[in-house]
Amino acid sequence: MPNTGDMPVPESPAKTRLTFSEVQVGAGIPRAGKAAGNPYLPEIATIVEIIQETPNIKSFRVRFDDDLLQAAFAFKPGQVGQLGVLGMGEATFAINSSPSERSYVQFSVMQAGEVTIGLHCLNEGDKVGVRAPMGRGFPVEEWKGRNLVYIMGGIGAAALRATILYTLEHREDYGSITILYGARTPVDLTYQYDIAEWESRRDIDAVITVDAPFPGWEGRVGMVPMVLEELAPKPENTIAVCCGPPIMIKFTLQALQRLEFPNEQVYTTLEKRMKCGIGICGRCNVGSKYVCVDGPVFSLAELKELPDEL
């Protein structure tokens, strides 16, 4: 059965446990991975293209070996997937291709730990395992008619790219769109191919900044939170979406507070160590919320309700 990308929390969840017979007839159980209903088994996919985004970030465009699955693969912007190398394990990454892209699924990977080093060793044509989509995406339907401000730092752009592409494809559904993207140096800016397009479009504001002056960089210089305060977006009817390193998120949230954005209008994504990706194995909890199924997207209002254990 093709994956529909349903959210794991339906409106009126069944308050009983299920049996195999119920699962067999398809009781609306969201599942990642094999159609047999085993959410732990990855789908095998082939790397069709690798893009060296920055010195330590590569984007992998992968295609499911099962053509039917590839054709039917659907997800909501902001959802994540487990990308893995058999033998090295798997890790959670945001799906950052556009939801309308039918020919491949894109993940961006910064080389950091065991799994990511394994991924960086791969070539085009190699096999990976994918379990996706997982988790809760951004409520892009609810945002219709609103102004959007995307605030991203470094690899944080990976978490928002799918959402940006989606809202740009449905440009008429949204008010003004601002993209503020910063990185330590120009070399650390991912998605140069998008940036060029964003900067050329007249129906959006794209502001690209780097932390400090850099030889050859003629663009804006300044930390993302400071540039944000200079831009000073108005909170009225506006959604602010931010993602980046923890320190950048911290100062960005403070800046948004000074700009008087209510917590309900601020969204971010959490990163946690994850294993099962389906809300069972236990490690990604913040209070009773499991980032893998209840997140990774949270509004600031939701985060304030959670125990302080980020």
């Binding site: 794991p8 969840p13 446990r17 299920l18 699962v23 159980i29 599942r31 389906i278 069972i280 199924v293």
Partner: peptide
């Protein structure tokens, strides 16, 4: 059973069940 059995609309664990 609740955790592995999809209680509340969550995932169903085929191994446990």
């Amino acid at each position: 059973d609740n955790v592995f059995g999809g209680y509340g609309g969550f995932y169903f664990d085929p191994y446990y069940n």
